[in-house]
Design a binder for these strands. Structure first.
Length: 425
RNA sequence: GACCCCAUCGUCUAGCCUGGUCUAGGACAAGAGCUUUUCAAGCUCUCGACGCGGGUUCAAAUCCCGCUGGGGUCGCCA
């Protein structure tokens, strides 16, 4: 039975790189009907934080990666000491103060990686390894081996950056008498500048993407496409579908650069294809946060209608707050450049006539509004665009947005009057 | 610096293992046009890559070697 694990350290948030590693582990486990184990590597007491742990667990759940078993290394210190003592007893390790150190024996170490094939190392270039630190806690390489062995992990799927740890760990497996797991080192995700993904190069906590209104499906889809392809030129793929198609040996060897543009495109795709009702529930907290709506008396129907207007254009849900603010605000702010471009010339006469036509409408709807507008420009013998743009800016404060007649319809006659009056001298 | 990994459009990739069907396919981005109601949506089109040099072979993006370039690791961090 296949058993894989994702082993994050709660010394930081879960970000793009970690989620991708987790995803490939999870996918492999589900594809092979094995177990996906989550192991929290919290041996560094000073740097491990509960808030990071909570964020990691929450993000994994949000992305859809449920785990089958959960362990904490901080609860297993006795175990590591026990195995270190065994090596001490056999004379394969020695003490240096309180610390226990593994004596590295010169040798060639070959590993057979599922993605990279055979890799050979010369142990003469490897220093003796600390197993147990002076404070009694285990080092990463030691705890990792003991746990992977005791948890009967069959496949160690982790980042490329661990390749150089692998020979050190293999020696430990050997002296401890543990069977070797299969290794699969997946390529790293690099930042835009080329270096390792970090805060400076665009690493952002998964929870941040969530807060910015990215959908879990989009993020997961994006992550899967980094280093793996389902083939057939397919770009859109769900987690469920990927289970049947995923093959760890087909994962690339090449590092991939994180590209926000593609994530945005995928998110836009998923937003377009998501039920507006579900989107509304996600967007309401954002609107509340932005101070655009009042949680206490909220017109959910109205939010839904406005949301539908913007749905095809959104890269993320947070954009909605910025783009649709004029539907929720009493006083709108006009972008200076927009004002300069479209409201510098006086439109009093046109605005006034248009308002009169609107007020005279029997039925106030996008179609009748448009008809009124078309009649007006015909009567005045002017171009539609010469009036449409000034109207949009006066009503929304922006130069881009949904169709003008829908904007007027959803703004309502009262607010339309209010906003246009300001420009009538 | 030592050791290790990697190398197809700007980016993500298909093709490579099992050489010929590759004048190298798709997607994102970019550019152009249409949509005369904007674009941040939609449609159409365009631009754009096998890092370099040697081999092997009738034939190389595909196999081998070297170089160059990029990345990773070298912690009593994980």
């Amino acid at each position: 039975m296949v058993r894989v694990r994702f082993a994050p350290s709660p010394t930081g948030y879960l970000h793009i790189g970690g989620s991708r590693t987790s995803l490939f582990n999870w996918l492999y486990a589900r594809a092979k009907q094995g177990k996906f184990i989550l192991r929290i590597e919290d041996t560094d007491k000073a740097r491990s934080k509960k808030e990071f742990l909570d964020e990691i667990l929450e993000s994994l759940r949000w992305l859809g990666m449920e785990w089958d078993e959960l362990y904490f290394q901080s609860q297993r210190f006795a175990l590591y000491k026990e195995y270190a003592q065994k090596l001490l007893d056999k004379g394969l390790a020695y003490r240096e103060g309180e610390a226990i150190i593994f004596k590295v024996v010169p040798q060639k170490i070959k590993i057979n990686d599922l993605i990279h094939g055979e890799i050979e190392f010369d142990a003469t270039t490897i220093k003796d390894q600390v197993l147990i630190k002076s404070d009694g806690t285990p080092t990463y390489n030691f705890a990792c081996v003991v746990d992977d062995a005791l948890m009967q992990i069959t496949h160690v799927i982790r980042g490329d950056d661990h390749i150089s740890n692998t020979p050190k760990q293999v020696m430990l497996y050997q002296v401890l008498g543990f069977p070797l797991p299969q290794f699969a080192h997946i390529p790293l995700i690099l930042g835009k500048a080329g270096g390792r993904l970090s805060k400076r190069t665009g690493a952002v906590a998964i929870s941040e993407y969530r807060k910015a209104g990215y959908l879990a499906e989009a993020l997961v889809n994006f992550l899967m496409l980094l280093g793996w392809s389902p083939g057939n030129n397919q770009e859109i793929i769900t987690l469920k579908e990927a289970i049947n198609r995923f093959d760890i040996t087909q994962v690339n060897k090449t590092a991939a650069i994180f590209d926000l543009e593609k994530l945005n495109w995928l998110n836009n795709y998923y937003i377009k294809h998501t039920e507006p009702q579900r989107l509304r529930e996600l967007v309401i907290p954002l609107l509340v946060d932005a101070g655009l709506v009042d949680k206490a008396n909220l017109d959910k129907e109205y939010v839904l209608k406005i949301l539908k207007l913007f749905q095809p254009r959104l890269n993320n849900l947070k954009d909605f707050c910025a783009w649709a603010d004029f539907f929720f605000k009493k006083e709108i702010e006009i972008e200076p450049a927009a004002k300069e471009k479209f409201l510098a010339v006086d439109k009093s006469a046109e605005f006034k006539l248009f308002l009169e036509k609107l007020a005279a409408l029997e039925d106030f709807n996008p179609l009748s509004i448009e008809e009124a507008f078309r009649n007006l420009v015909r009567e005045l013998n002017i171009e539609s665009r010469s009036l449409i743009h000034p109207l949009r800016v006066a009503l929304t404060g922006k130069t881009v947005g949904p169709g003008l007649f829908e904007v007027i319809y959803y703004l309502g006659l009262e607010r339309t009057k209010q906003r246009l009056s300001k420009w009538i001298k």
